[in-house]
């Protein structure tokens, strides 16, 4: 069945692409393009519901709504993975920021401590 090959291949492709690429302009653009395509398809299905069934029959799915469900599943997986990768990257940046802040704070407290020691016991 064409639909099975299509669905499995697209899921696999997305996982590979998403995990491979660093977040960049190119991937962002691709995400947006896919988003537009999905939106266009949704609009078309609203305007002419019979188109969905025809499209479904074309790829070997009996009912139009089934095709929509399959596509939604793929989109959902895609979105989840994208967000996961993004959150992990954000976490990493956040940790680096917190770490820098901790070291800075420490340096500052050491400086402050040294200057009070100097003023209490003036040298020379």
């Amino acid at each position: 069945m064409i639909i099975r090959i299509f669905l499995l291949a697209s899921i696999l492709l997305m996982v590979i692409v998403l995990l491979k690429a660093r977040p960049s302009g190119g991937r962002l653009a691709m995400t947006r393009l896919i988003g537009f395509a999905v939106a266009l398809g949704a609009a078309a299905s609203v305007i002419a519901p019979s188109l969905v069934t025809e499209a479904a029959n074309l790829v070997g799915v009996r009912e139009g709504p089934n095709l929509i469900l399959y596509v939604l599943v793929v989109v959902f997986v895609f979105t989840t993975i994208t967000q996961n990768v993004r959150i992990r990257e954000l976490d990493r940046r956040l940790a680096n920021l917190a770490r820098a802040q901790a070291l800075l704070d420490f340096d500052r407290s050491v400086d402050a401590h040294e200057s009070t020691v100097d003023s209490v016991h003036p040298r020379g």
Binding site: L94, A95, A98, R99, Q101, A102, L103, D105, F106, D107
Partner: peptide
């Protein structure tokens, strides 16, 4: 000597902060 993360990050992050301190300071 105390290094304070402004937010909770996890034990691995804390260890790495300790290593960073050791290496840099």
């Amino acid at each position: 000597k105390v290094l304070s993360h402004p937010i909770n990050l996890g034990q691995g992050a804390a260890l790495q902060t300790g290593f960073d301190y050791m290496l840099a300071r």
